[in-house]
Simulated assay, not measured.
Amino acid sequence: MKLPFTLLSPSQENCLPLVFDSPHSGINFPSDFKSEVPLSQLKSGWDAFIDDLWQDAVKVGGHLLHADFSRMYIDPNRAPNDIDPALLDAPWHECQPTKYSERGMGLIRRYALPNVAMYKEPLSRAQIEHRIKHYYQPYHQALSATLAKLHQDFGAVWHIDCHSMKSKGNGMNIDNGVARPDIILGDNLGQAAGAEFVQVVEDAFSKRGYNVVRNTPYKGGYLVTHYGNIKDNRHSMQIEINRALYMNEKAFTPNDNYHNFKQDISQVVKDIADYVSANV
């Protein structure tokens, strides 16, 4: 079976303890996925082109991991037991739904968009376990192993979880109807990444003219809270990019600013790499 992710690594001579991951940039749906929701609506959860925008991470010594499967199938940025019992055909003790499941956006999506149900029929425990075993766990194993090896080699590791966001929140979001800034940095209110590192990332965007906000409304999801541990010199933060900066949100195509924005991201990546290099 083909691996459900792509992991790009730098040369050994150029390697830094720096990892970028994009859990939502996949758009593939495995053959067992059955839904009547049209692809145009399923794409609403797709972090389109995020893996491409951050591609230069590898040139400066970073690793870049991205999922090849859609988060609408199973979401790597959720806890493995964040399962909505309403999706199942029978009770299952593993279900421990969080605030994400309450909004229909747990490990397995209940809704594609507000009031647009993903499934007409309940799912079985076996179906969900299959998704966890063959898609979710391999992604996390790749990320965990990469972070662990770098931490072992360097004594520290810096992880950036890369996302995109709609320019305005919808009814499934906690900021429904609110216009969003250019960039939102999430460090779980300072608990997942060192303040100096977060400031470097903020400065990298703001000095290029972008409006940057921290932790509102996104503090960082499961990946940031699970892998960040400042006391152990493991720094993890989330970057949310406003889609209007680089794409046509309705057509899911790059806009006229795509190339310029990608160049800016390349410079942001370089600033981050320079910081990491100076601290190992």
Score class of each variant (00 low, 15 high):
K207L: 09
R208M: 10
R208V: 05
G209S: 10
G209F: 11
N211P: 15
V212F: 05
V213N: 07
V213M: 05
V213T: 08
V213E: 15
R214P: 01
R214A: 05
N215A: 02
T216L: 15
Y218T: 14
K219T: 07
K219N: 09
K219C: 10
G220D: 07
G220S: 04
G220T: 11
G221Y: 11
V224F: 01
V224D: 00
T225W: 06
H226L: 14
Y227I: 02
Y227F: 13
G228N: 01
N229C: 01
I230P: 00
K231G: 10
K231P: 07
D232K: 14
D232M: 14
D232A: 08
N233F: 06
R234K: 14
H235D: 08
S236K: 05
S236F: 03
S236L: 03
M237E: 03
I239F: 04
I241C: 11
I241M: 13
Y246F: 10
Y246D: 05
M247L: 10
N248S: 11
N248W: 12
N248F: 08
N248Y: 13
K250F: 13
K250S: 15
T253K: 08
P254T: 04
N255V: 04
N255R: 03
D256K: 08
D256L: 06
Y258E: 00
Y258M: 00
H259S: 14
F261E: 00
F261W: 00
K262R: 08
Q263K: 12
Q263V: 08
Q267T: 14
V268M: 11
V268N: 01
V268I: 05
K270H: 09
K270W: 06
D271E: 11
D271I: 02
D271L: 14
I272H: 05
I272V: 14
A273P: 02
A273W: 02
D274E: 06
D274W: 12
D274R: 07
